[in-house]
Design a protein around this nucleic acid. Structure first.
Lengths: 339, 339
DNA sequence: TTGTAAGCGTTATCAT
DNA sequence: ATGATAACGCTTACAA
């Protein structure tokens, strides 16, 4: 029952080729003819048939790229799984995924990754960008070259990236604070262990958490320290913080570092401590089961990868831009019972 | 790069038609030829191309049916939305969805719905079954007629249904109990408002919740009452329960009824009451925002509908049975901050 | 500028 | 039992 190019061609009294050119703005169509075709398509509610498109796409070499520091990172492994599943769902278009992943945060490396993807001829890129001017510039040059770019998990401003897919960091922090409201409704003295104060997302989480703590009676965030996403540093810094603030009764981990940080609390023999963390890596799940962490707020990495590929596909193949500029994941609360 | 029927045909020295017959067990192929073809397909890792299949399927009249008491039910409206979105994603196969929905729980009506779907020629049905022998029998007759059937949101035993898609009720109850563990770690005196003690799912939720409460010191479930999913009845029954058990400090709603039940608590002027409910209808969300409900455990109705159609599609079109017999949704905890 | 025809992979029909 | 062929909807190289 749906309308086809063939039907439009008959109604417009032209060939299928002309209709295709008109509908896809490929040029070489007399303006008045084009107008007529577009009008008919509009009126009849034409939408291209996915299968026909897929079959025709097989002769192209459609591929997307993903650039992130994947190696040895449980979070990105999940994100990648999601991206791969979505890619498989488009395998009838011949879509493939090229992965450019390193280990460290390193601007030069990320620039190389992006260049490599471009050289490989990808039509879309999902990147977890470092927030630096040279990356900004690079992304803009990719966009100028006709590549659709989206950011995942971390965003960067002033670029032509189509949208951001990832955590709503502020709400993540507010949600952690909300659990605190229910578990310890007053006299919260919180210590925060963040990843790096140079990471925007971590800061937004802290802001959300602090804003929430401020609403509780007799409560305050008493100190903040950085783990730099290293468990050993987290251990040392948390130990220092807990020692100098014996009034702390709550720990919030706004990034990686809970493994080391909780060990510090255990070594100090602190028992009446409320601990809230982010994400659900294997180590975190283990500590939730042990009761060392009461709740963890998760950002659905699998879904992030999955949605990223879906959005790129719609943009590249169907020419449909993302519905919103910020595609936020649900912040999922996990406790021992629904881990 | 993927293998096609054409390639297999060439390698086997037969025509594409023969390969198709062999691969799909349509008969009329010499056994030795069939064996050879299957072996080649196996070795080369043949998987049918989705787009080709879709195009060919357009000439059939593929449709699925959904039978549930949808009218005026917010939960099923969400489920239906998910089912429709999934159906749209298969629109290139010409897939359509036929909805058979009534308003009341009524065996005769459900039997009529199922017969109507069968008469309409659907190849798959997702049903939210009443747990009755006549429904059991009807489902088995549908399965015998070659229709793939799955249950959603509620299950029924001793049938040829492919799988169940829906809430893990026991874990839902345990999760509600888990929130309680964090919010009120001891001296819990809980009253439960269930829907109907004849509903299996509600009972499993109660069991999960009770099992959890039993692990808390000095705690117990002191009473249970039924709302029959009617807010007015919920109000009356909850009022009665709270009056006769002034020690109750916790309410758990294992089904619909929170709107009426919470009103009863408010009318009695009870303030130090911990309230946990299920699902997130508009009314529930409102009460969570007002602080009248501390947490609600949700079963993702949209996802249930979406997955149901996906599973039916895989079974009917790709002949791939569901991965597990029980496709459980994640039990999502929602509090004011992540609603 | 426009039309024609082939091709993508699978399935169904009709010959043989 | 098997093969040939057309059909599904879209894209594109090439011819007009």
């Amino acid at each position: 029952m749906p309308v086809t190019v063939k039907q439009i061609a008959e109604l417009a009294g032209v060939s299928r080729g002309t209709v295709d050119r008109a509908l896809n703005g490929r040029g070489n169509v007399r303006p008045e003819v084009e107008k007529r075709i577009l009008k008919i398509a509009e009126e009849m509610g034409y939408t291209p048939n996915r299968a026909g498109k897929a079959l025709a796409y097989q002769r192209k070499n459609l591929s997307f790229g993903i650039a992130a520091n994947i190696e040895g990172n449980e979070f990105f492994a999940d994100l990648l799984r999601g991206a791969k599943v979505a890619t498989d769902e488009y395998s009838d278009f011949g879509l493939t995924l090229k992965i450019a992943g390193g280990r460290r945060y390193d601007a030069a490396q990320q620039l190389r990754q992006l260049s490599a993807l471009q050289a490989a001829g990808v039509s879309g890129i999902a990147v977890c960008p470092l927030n630096l001017p040279e990356i900004e510039e690079k992304i803009n040059s990719l966009v100028a070259a006709g590549i659709k770019v989206i950011t995942v998990n971390s965003d960067i401003e002033n670029t032509g990236r189509l949208c951001y897919v990832g955590c709503n960091y502020y709400q993540s922090g507010v949600t952690a604070g909300g659990m605190l409201r229910l578990m310890r409704p007053q006299e919260v003295k919180a210590g925060i262990v963040t990843g790096s104060i140079r990471m925007l997302g971590h800061n937004h989480r802290m802001k959300g958490f602090s804003d929430m703590v401020k609403t509780l009676p007799d409560s305050a965030v008493v100190d903040v320290c950085e783990s730099l996403d290293e468990q050993e540093i987290a251990y040392e810094e948390t130990l220092k913080m807990l020692k100098s603030h014996p009034e702390i009764n709550t720990l919030y981990f706004a990034a990686a570092g809970a493994v080391g940080g909780v060990r510090a609390a255990v070594d100090l023999g602190l028992s009446d401590l409320t601990v809230i963390s982010c994400d659900d890596t294997r180590e975190i799940r283990k500590m939730v089961r042990l009761g060392l962490i009461q709740a963890t707020v998760c950002q659905q990495p699998y879904q992030q990868g999955y949605r990223a590929v879906q959005i790129l596909f719609d943009a590249v193949v169907n020419n449909i831009p993302p519905a919103q500029e910020f595609c936020y994941m649900d912040n999922i609360i996990r406790i021992r019972e629904n881990l």
